[in-house]
Every structure is written in C-alpha cells, then in structure tokens.
Simulated assay, not measured.
Amino acid sequence: MKKKGIAMLTNSMDGFVLKQINYNDYEVSFRRWLVHQIDDGKMSLDEVRDRFHLNPQEYRRIISKWQERYSDELHLSLSLMNSKERADNKQLEARIKELEKQLEYAKMKDIAMNTLIDVAETEFKISIRKKAGSKQ
C-alpha cells in the first residue's frame, strides 16, 4: 500500500501460509535411505532439514521416529558431559589409579609377610600361623 509516494508496511501476512507437511507422504525407501545417511554421518540433521525443507519445529521429532523404525543401529540420547563432569571424571580416574597402586602395594606386602612367616617357620621351627580347628 502506498500513500503519497511513501511505502507503507502492513501487519498483514497475506500470501504467507505455513505449509503443512504430511510426513506419511514420504516413501518408506526414502525414509530408510535418509536414516542411513544420518547414521553414517553423511548428512547432519540441519542439512536434512534445509535440503528437504522440513518444518523447523518438527524435523527432530520426525527423524527420531524414523530412526526408531528404520535404523539398524541403537540410538541412545546421551547428553554430552559438561566441563565440571569431565573434571569430576578425571578426578575419579586419578583416584582409581591411586587406589590401584595402593592395592598392588598391599598385595606385595601380603606376599612379603607370608614369605617371612614361611621362612621363620622353616628356619626357626616356630609355629606362627594359627592351625585350622585349634582352640585358643
């Protein structure tokens, strides 16, 4: 609409209609091919959305449904770890290594003690270990 040579903007959205897409119209072979492309990493979800003009609000839900039906792979929705969780994970891994070293040291100490007891019993003929079934 023009008024005295000035272009006027209107709030009317005439001519702009949100097109409803019926996702059941896509052939099963296309769905399988698309899921395979996504699973193999050949296409990202955003590339699929843009290339095939999928609804920006619905495309993730539709593709996840198709993946459930047509994918050979198991899809788990695991979120990525944030930096705090990664730091906690590194702390836990360090703690595990520390405990493994302590366990190895305890095992070596046990072997050394048993060897010491064996040598003492044979060399000095001293009964150190408790006999099974004996009463104190």
Results as ranks from 00 to 15, higher is better:
3 K>N: 07
3 K>I: 14
4 K>T: 07
4 K>I: 10
4 K>A: 13
5 G>S: 12
6 I>L: 12
9 L>F: 14
11 N>D: 15
12 S>Q: 14
13 M>V: 12
14 D>T: 11
17 V>Q: 14
18 L>A: 09
18 L>C: 05
19 K>D: 15
19 K>N: 15
19 K>W: 08
19 K>T: 15
20 Q>K: 13
21 I>S: 01
21 I>L: 08
21 I>D: 03
22 N>D: 15
23 Y>W: 10
25 D>H: 07
26 Y>H: 05
29 S>W: 05
29 S>L: 07
30 F>T: 09
30 F>I: 08
31 R>G: 01
31 R>I: 07
31 R>C: 11
32 R>L: 07
32 R>D: 02
33 W>R: 12
34 L>W: 03
36 H>C: 06
36 H>S: 10
37 Q>C: 10
37 Q>A: 08
38 I>K: 00
38 I>A: 04
39 D>C: 01
40 D>G: 09
40 D>Q: 14
44 S>H: 05
46 D>L: 04
49 R>D: 01
49 R>P: 02
49 R>W: 01
51 R>L: 11
52 F>H: 10
53 H>K: 08
53 H>Y: 07
54 L>C: 06
54 L>P: 02
55 N>V: 00
55 N>I: 03
57 Q>N: 13
58 E>I: 03
58 E>T: 08
60 R>H: 11
60 R>N: 11
61 R>K: 15
61 R>S: 15
63 I>R: 03
63 I>K: 05
63 I>C: 12
63 I>Q: 01
66 W>G: 04
70 Y>V: 08
70 Y>T: 07
71 S>Q: 03
71 S>P: 02
72 D>S: 06
73 E>I: 00
73 E>M: 03
73 E>D: 04
73 E>A: 05
74 L>I: 13
75 H>A: 03
77 S>I: 00
79 S>C: 06
79 S>Y: 10
80 L>G: 05
81 M>L: 14
81 M>Y: 12
83 S>K: 13
83 S>I: 11
84 K>D: 09
85 E>I: 04
85 E>W: 08
86 R>K: 12
86 R>P: 02
93 E>P: 04
93 E>D: 12
94 A>H: 14
95 R>H: 13
96 I>Q: 13
97 K>L: 11
98 E>I: 03
98 E>Q: 14
99 L>W: 11
100 E>Y: 07
101 K>T: 03
104 E>P: 00
104 E>S: 07
105 Y>I: 11
106 A>H: 10
109 K>H: 04
113 M>C: 10
114 N>C: 08
114 N>F: 05
114 N>A: 10
115 T>Y: 09
116 L>C: 09
117 I>A: 02
118 D>A: 09
119 V>F: 12
120 A>T: 00
120 A>Q: 00
121 E>N: 06
123 E>T: 13
123 E>D: 09
123 E>H: 09
127 S>M: 00
128 I>S: 03
128 I>D: 01
128 I>W: 01
130 K>E: 09
130 K>G: 02
131 K>D: 02
132 A>N: 08
133 G>N: 12
136 Q>N: 00
